[in-house]
C-alpha cells in the first residue's frame, strides 16, 4: 500500500538576508511518509525548519530539491493556481490565531471563505448552515460568528481557525504549532479538541510543535527535526524510551527540566508508567 503523503528528500532554501547570493537551507532533505488517518508529530526547536517543511507540503514555499507526492501524484511542482483543488484535501491550522484572521472580517466570513473559494457551487444558505455546523463541532458559540477577531480570545480564535481548516472536509491537516501562542490553560483544550476531531473524522495530521510533551500526547509516530534534518523517525514509545540521537535526548531532558507539569504527562505517556496512570488525557 502506498502512503497518502510521501515526502522524499524535500529541501527548502531561502535567499540569505545578506545579499551575497548564497542561500540558507531551512530543510535539508527531509524524507517521510504518512498513511491515511495517521497522526504524525514533528518536533524540533524553533528555527529548525519544521514550519518550512509544513508550508512546503501545502505548496506555500517552493522546494529546491526533492519531491512531495499526495496520493501518488507529485504536488510540489503544481503551480499556485492549479494547487487550488488540492486545498480541499490539504488544510492548515496556523500558529498565531490572532494574526491568521483578517481583522476586517467577521469570524463567519473568514470561516466561510474556503467554502466560497473551493466549493463555489454551494448556495449562500447552505454555506451558512455549514459554517454553523462546523462552529458547533469545534465548540464555538454561534453568536461569536458575527464578531470580529479582536473581540475573541486566543482559544476561541484557534477554535475558529480549526473550523476554517475543517470546513472543506480535508483528508490531511497540517497543524503548525497550533497551541504555542495560547495560554497554558487553553492549550490543553485545543489539543484535546484536535485529538477528538481527528478521531471522529479519521483525519491524517502532521502536528508540528516544539513541545515534545504535546506531540507525545497526540501522535503515535514522531519525527524529530534538528537543523533542517529529520534525525529521528519512529514510534512515540520508542523515541521516548530509547532515543537514538543525542539531540532527542537533550529534547527529552529539557522537557523534564523546564516543564514539570508537562514532564509528568510525558512520564505518564511513557509505556512503563502508562499502565499505572490511566489514559494520559490533558485536563483543560
Amino acid at each position: 500500500m502506498s502512503a497518502m503523503l510521501e515526502v522524499r528528500n524535500a529541501t527548502v532554501t531561502f535567499p540569505r538576508p545578506a545579499a551575497d547570493g548564497g542561500r540558507l537551507t531551512a530543510v535539508g532533505g527531509a524524507t517521510f511518509a504518512l498513511q491515511a488517518g495517521e497522526i504524525l508529530g514533528l518536533v524540533g526547536e524553533s528555527g529548525c525548519g519544521k514550519s518550512s517543511l509544513g508550508r512546503a507540503i501545502l505548496g506555500l514555499v517552493p522546494l529546491a530539491a526533492g519531491e512531495i507526492r499526495w496520493r501518488g501524484r507529485r504536488i510540489d511542482t503544481v503551480p499556485r493556481e492549479a494547487f487550488r483543488p488540492l486545498r480541499r484535501e490539504l488544510q492548515l491550522v496556523f500558529q498565531d490565531p490572532a494574526a491568521s484572521f483578517d481583522p476586517r472580517m467577521t469570524i463567519a466570513e473568514s470561516v466561510a471563505e474556503p467554502l466560497r473559494a473551493l466549493v463555489p457551487q454551494l448556495s449562500a444558505p447552505d454555506r451558512a448552515a455549514r459554517v454553523e455546523a462546523i462552529l458547533g463541532e469545534v465548540g464555538l458559540a454561534v453568536e461569536l460568528a458575527a464578531r470580529y477577531p479582536h473581540q475573541l480570545s486566543g482559544g476561541q480564535l484557534q477554535r475558529a481557525g480549526i473550523a476554517r481548516a475543517l470546513i472543506v472536509d480535508p483528508a490531511f491537516l497540517v497543524c503548525d504549532e497550533p497551541v504555542s501562542a495560547l495560554d497554558v490553560s487553553v492549550q490543553g483544550q485545543i489539543v484535546n479538541l484536535l485529538a477528538r476531531i481527528r478521531r471522529e473524522r479519521g483525519l491524517a495530521c502532521l502536528f508540528i510543535s516544539h513541545n515534545l510533551a504535546v506531540v507525545a500526547h497526540l501522535a503515535e509516530r514522531i519525527l524529530v527535526m534538528h537543523r533542517g534534518r529529520i534525525i529521528e523517525d519512529g514510534l512515540r514509545d520508542e523515541i521516548l524510551q530509547a532515543p537514538r540521537h543525542p539531540y532527542t535526548r537533550t529534547l527529552l531532558d529539557s522537557v523534564l527540566a523546564v516543564e514539570p507539569v508537562a514532564a509528568r504527562r510525558l512520564i505518564a505517556a511513557r509505556p512503563s508508567s502508562r499502565d499505572a496512570v490511566a489514559a494520559p488525557e490533558l485536563t483543560p
Partner: peptide, 26 residues
C-alpha cells in the same frame, strides 16, 4: 506577509479576491 493573507491562500482564494477582500480593506 501577514498570516491572514496566507490563510486566504490556503483557503483557495484567488489573487483578485485576496486583493479586493483582504488587502484593500486593511
Amino acid at each position: 506577509e501577514r498570516d491572514f493573507i496566507e490563510a486566504a491562500v490556503v483557503g483557495g482564494a484567488g489573487t483578485a479576491r485576496i486583493i479586493a477582500r483582504h488587502i484593500v480593506p486593511n
